[in-house]
């Protein structure tokens, strides 16, 4: 029986990919109904969560179009507001790091602070005064001194000096007004071990910082994700006669561990195509020509979302869905017929 590729498959040949565009539009297939139906979508759409914790996640959206999946990915990266250090007021900086470089480094530190409580700081308005509703205040002060109790003969700067290294954990949050209700546990860096500067005796850093809301489109420091990406589920179809014996073990070794297994009859069977890296190694061997078809399922998206620590990954995704919805609702309010 000849192999017919399902419609929702991207074909993967040794030198190219085929059928990359969606075809589920009205008029594409004669006599078929491909008009939008929320009921049909509801019946086909599935969510699978592979794993999820405070920082990382992998989940599948099955039954959506790439245009929609990509919108969520783009929103997660560049349009979800988070808090980051934006203004640095340097009282004293005698370290070797220049003021502007230090300020930039501070800005990039991910903060563990829920952005939902804050309002927008109006950067464009010169009259706008920061309030407890829109600005978090942080302080950092460190002075390096000689450690008189350093063990004899040591060359380790951490032993020789006090405060030789300034870390993100040294940042102190100063609650303003209502902020004690919103941030009862305070605001800290998501990772306390980020090295900000190195000092030597006599050098000093003393500065205060203002954190405001922003989006990744403006500056990457405001992005809530370290990465947000998706890939399509790989497919491997063994066509025609089963692959057996010596050939089966060669077939198995063409894929990463756990993708192909050999069953009791000695036939190679696809165990877990999800683990495949789609290296296309199998397509390099003439003995497998015409016996295997590689592909990807065009409507099965495997998302990988890594949070910076401010918002959990599942909340980031939900926010992206809500934001796309909001974009539509805003446009819907305009009366264009008039």
């Amino acid at each position: 029986m000849a192999y017919t590729k399902p419609r929702n498959r991207v074909g993967i040949e040794h030198d190219r990919v085929t059928d990359v565009s969606s075809t589920d539009f009205p008029g594409y297939y004669p006599g078929e109904d491909h008009s939008w139906s929320i009921e049909k979508f509801k019946n086909h759409f599935k969510v699978h969560i592979e794993y999820l914790n405070e920082l990382n996640s992998e989940f599948d959206l099955i039954g959506v179009d790439p245009s929609i999946a990509n919108a969520f990915r783009r929103i997660m990266i560049s349009e979800i507001p988070t808090l980051a250090i934006e203004y640095v007021y340097i009282e004293n900086n005698t370290s070797i790091i220049q003021d502007e470089v230090l300020a930039h480094r501070l800005g990039l530190i991910p903060l563990k602070a829920n952005p939902d409580y804050m309002h927008w700081f109006k950067k464009d308005d010169p009259e706008f005064e920061p309030t407890d509703y829109d600005t978090l205040v942080l302080h950092l002060s460190a002075k390096c001194t000689v450690n008189p109790n350093a063990p004899e003969g040591t060359t380790d700067p951490k032993m020789l000096y006090n405060n030789a290294h300034v870390y993100a954990r040294d940042i102190v949050y100063e609650p303003q007004g209502h902020q004690t209700e919103w941030y009862p546990d305070g605001v800290t860096a998501a990772n306390p071990d980020i090295l900000i500067a190195k000092l030597r005796p006599g050098q000093e850093i003393d500065l205060s910082m203002h954190c405001i809301l922003g989006i990744g489109q403006d500056h990457a420091k405001f992005s809530p994700v370290a990465t947000a990406s998706y890939r399509l589920l790989p497919t491997i179809d063994i066509i025609g006669e089963p692959i057996t014996g010596e050939l089966a073990s060669k077939f198995k070794s063409c894929f990463p561990k756990g993708v192909v297994a050999i069953n009791s009859k000695g036939e190679a069977v696809v165990k877990d195509a999800r683990k495949d890296t789609v290296s296309r190694e199998v397509l390099r061997h003439p003995e497998f020509e015409g016996r295997v078809k590689l592909g990807r399922q065009r409507d099965h998206f495997i998302y990988c979302v890594e949070s910076t620590g401010a918002i959990p990954p599942d909340q980031i995704f939900l926010k992206s869905v809500q934001l796309l919805k909001k974009k539509c609702e805003i446009l819907r309010k305009f009366n264009l017929s008039a």
Binding site: F59, F317, Q322, L324, K325, C328
Partner: peptide, 18 residues
């Protein structure tokens, strides 16, 4: 625009359920 809002609602509720 309306269809896209409906689509987002389905995705949101399915994801929350999962």
């Amino acid at each position: 625009l309306d269809d896209l809002v409906d689509l987002c609602n389905v995705i949101e509720s399915e994801f929350k359920e999962a």
